[in-house]
Design a protein around this nucleic acid. Sequence first.
DNA 1: CGTATTGTTGACGCGGCTCAAATGGAGTGG
DNA 2: CCACTCCATTTGAGCCGCGTCAACAATACG
Lengths: 251, 251
Amino acid sequence: MNGSNHVGFNQADGSEEECPDSHEVACAQCKLHGFLKFFEESDLIALNIFLSRRIPVAKGAILFDALASFRGIYAVKSGSFKSFSQLDPSGEQIQGFFLPGELIGLDSIHSSHYGYSAVAMETSSVCWLPFEHLDDLGERKSFFQEQVIRILVDQVRHDHHQTLLVGRRTAEERLGAFLLNLSERYGRHGFNGEAFRLPMLQNDIANYLGLSMETVCRLLRGFREQGVLSIQGKRLRILNPDCLRSIAHLC
Amino acid sequence: MNGSNHVGFNQADGSEEECPDSHEVACAQCKLHGFLKFFEESDLIALNIFLSRRIPVAKGAILFDALASFRGIYAVKSGSFKSFSQLDPSGEQIQGFFLPGELIGLDSIHSSHYGYSAVAMETSSVCWLPFEHLDDLGERKSFFQEQVIRILVDQVRHDHHQTLLVGRRTAEERLGAFLLNLSERYGRHGFNGEAFRLPMLQNDIANYLGLSMETVCRLLRGFREQGVLSIQGKRLRILNPDCLRSIAHLC
DNA sequence: CGTATTGTTGACGCGGCTCAAATGGAGTGG
DNA sequence: CCACTCCATTTGAGCCGCGTCAACAATACG
């Protein structure tokens, strides 16, 4: 767990501060780190040539377009993103949210285009791992693919759960499970899972969960009145996680 | 597209008839075939040592249990399966249906357990590809993994679509899209996409789509009365695909 | 400070769930 | 072949969750 046997990331740039921005995910907590940690040092040096670190992305800026040709995966370093498809002319359908430490675009591997768009919901920064030189890894490519498979499997699991959630649960259960999911993800990447920012609009939450904005708003008020959580602006605090779990029927 | 450059499958057993059962998928149309077709002949001979072909599975029999340890993937040769998780004590949640030519269990790769159960909805047969000797493939393992990734990506795409479908569409749109999806899948694997069996119970369809059985029943009657399709027993015939597409809002 | 965007609240209607009961069909044993 | 059972399907009645519409408040932003 000591990161000293790995090249790159924060340590690569000696002049870099330890923690320049408290809202930034630590490299050791980033999924990109887990992605690469099976490589030997020599490979990592090669990979680091291609790894672009901390690209700033302005709020509302498009990370990639649905029609953009696949050029690698991104890791959210700070800020947050949403992905959506435009299939329906009536508006966008939000596919997912991406918090610091999470990867975007992996499911477009082996496709010519990304197939969906990703935009920053706030001022953000990403690391970018281009995939074009992957074949240079030679025999080690298999390790790399194993990580890809591992993460894709995770996503399949999550999507199954999401389908179940959106299809068969009440609005209250969906929103509760959604908040718990956010909490768990923040916690996993080294943030406080009990108190965090809700970077997305209520409109986006509603869209994602297949609900109306008004229902989301009313439910949040209900949760507040039950003392389950508190909201001020975009800051959320979960006061009673057990109660929230029982609401979401995830005991 | 001539299958003669590949070893194994039907051709391997010289005494085997061409088409002993018209309800059986042709090997050239099976996803397992696509899965293996990138291998050289020598590798395929090795793989075929492990490939168990045409294992019969009785109606209602469990192919694998949620707690069974992962032992490889199955290809449906004839019949059909449903997969489901038992998370909810109130009953099963159906995750998917598997028709002849389709693969079951791939998303459990790199897990200790399957994580969900699969049972035969009718008298069926499968081919089984154990994964335990995959490392024997050596450098060619990478090709294999590439296929795994390709199929997992397909599944992620499908699951996203499913989430969207189940979350934001009316009951009519969901059922229409479901039937069209079945039609497309039967067609893709060499069957008649306009007239096929509905192997699952209406109860299962309802569960899968997040609807009640009664709603599914009423909607099917509506489709029949509109002349969109005809049903006798479990046999379904799509009389007006364009109308069904417009109902499903997939033009 | 003004404008645009997001969030809040109420009234109302309907899609689809629930409950309940009847009908049909497949399998089984006599 | 029939009688019986079990399960699936069908149909109806009633109700409620949540979407829609509309008006207004609050917040963000230039």
